Amino acid sequence: MSTSDVYDVAERVVKVVAAPYRIGEPQLEVETSCGIALCHDGDTDLKTIVKRADIALYAAKAAGRNTFRLYHKHMSASTEHNARLEPQIRRLVHDNHLQVCFQPQISLKDGLRGFEALLLWPDGTTVESMTVDEFVHVAEQSTLIEQVGEFVLGTVCAQMAEWMDLLTELNLSIAINVSMRELANPLFAGKVIRIVDAHDIDPQRIKIEISESTIPLDQARMLNVLAEFQAHGFRLSLDDFGTGYSSLLHLQKIALDELKIDQTSSASWVSTRRTTRLSARSSRWRSRLASI
């Protein structure tokens, strides 16, 4: 079979699987990604072929899904590294090794203002050393991010139910970070709302935190998801402000409750005409938020 024949088969597989279908009333759509590795004249053992196909599969996922990639030796070392991390992250999720901790948010003026939910895994787990950013990036390339998100939300809601009297008395909230893939899902807000309602949690005690540096390409869909959260009473927080200037016009359509300026960006802003305009814009945003 030639390389062009392989491409033809992969294209047909992706097209057939991606076609919408119905089970009962709702119409369902399935995303698929294919990783391909070729073996010529038996010059490569089976284990190596499978490993190469897995690396190509990860590259296809990173390219946006509903596509395929053929392995080649120039694929980056980072792609291979991330491909190795995915099964290890799956094991962390499957074995219930993930933990949620609550980092206090302190105001120099008012003291304790709330908490931010952070995802951790204990020392001693049999996984490679990886950062939280690597974890999230790899999880977003698969359905793992949805399982992780549900775990974090469920854990936060259970803890909030125990702390509700304290949270109400001190007017505290808990921030939950949401990922790019979750924001791109039009059903995401509804799922979160159902889980929060099931725990009898006041949505005003939860801050949905998004990062400006990871805003999805489909910003219109993201705005609809955020508007649904806001209509239900959730608070909205924007992290890493200053790392994605092109998105500001879109985000001005949402009344944010909190703005967290990226430290690197604020340190690098100097008195040029462009950065002065950006600084002035951020000042107006801070003034607007202060009046909420």
Rank of each mutant, 00 (worst) to 15 (best):
S2R: 02
T3W: 04
D5G: 10
V6R: 03
V9L: 09
V9F: 09
A10K: 01
R12K: 14
K15F: 15
K15C: 14
V16C: 14
V17K: 09
A18C: 08
A19C: 04
P20N: 12
R22E: 12
G24V: 10
G24R: 08
G35R: 07
I36E: 09
I36H: 05
H40P: 02
D43V: 03
T44P: 00
T48N: 09
I49F: 01
Y58H: 08
Y58Q: 08
A60K: 03
A62H: 08
A63H: 08
G64M: 10
F68L: 04
R69K: 12
L70D: 05
L70W: 03
L70G: 04
H74P: 00
T79Y: 06
A83E: 05
P87E: 10
V93K: 03
V100L: 05
C101F: 10
Q103W: 02
Q103T: 00
Q103A: 05
I106D: 01
D110W: 09
D110F: 07
R113P: 02
F115L: 07
M130R: 15
D133V: 09
D133N: 13
V136F: 11
A139Q: 07
S142D: 03
G149H: 04
F151H: 05
V152G: 06
L153I: 11
V156A: 04
A158Q: 14
L167S: 00
I174G: 09
I174S: 12
A175K: 11
I176K: 05
S179C: 07
S179E: 07
E182T: 06
A184E: 14
N185P: 01
F188S: 05
G190L: 05
I193K: 05
I195L: 13
H199Y: 15
D202A: 10
P203E: 05
P203F: 03
P203N: 02
I206M: 10
K207R: 09
E209P: 11
E212S: 06
S213H: 08
D218V: 12
Q219K: 14
A220S: 11
R221C: 14
R221Q: 14
L223N: 04
F234N: 01
D239M: 05
F241W: 06
T243L: 04
D257M: 01
Q263E: 02
W269E: 05
W269M: 13
T272N: 00
R274M: 00
A280N: 13
S287V: 03
R288G: 13
I292P: 00
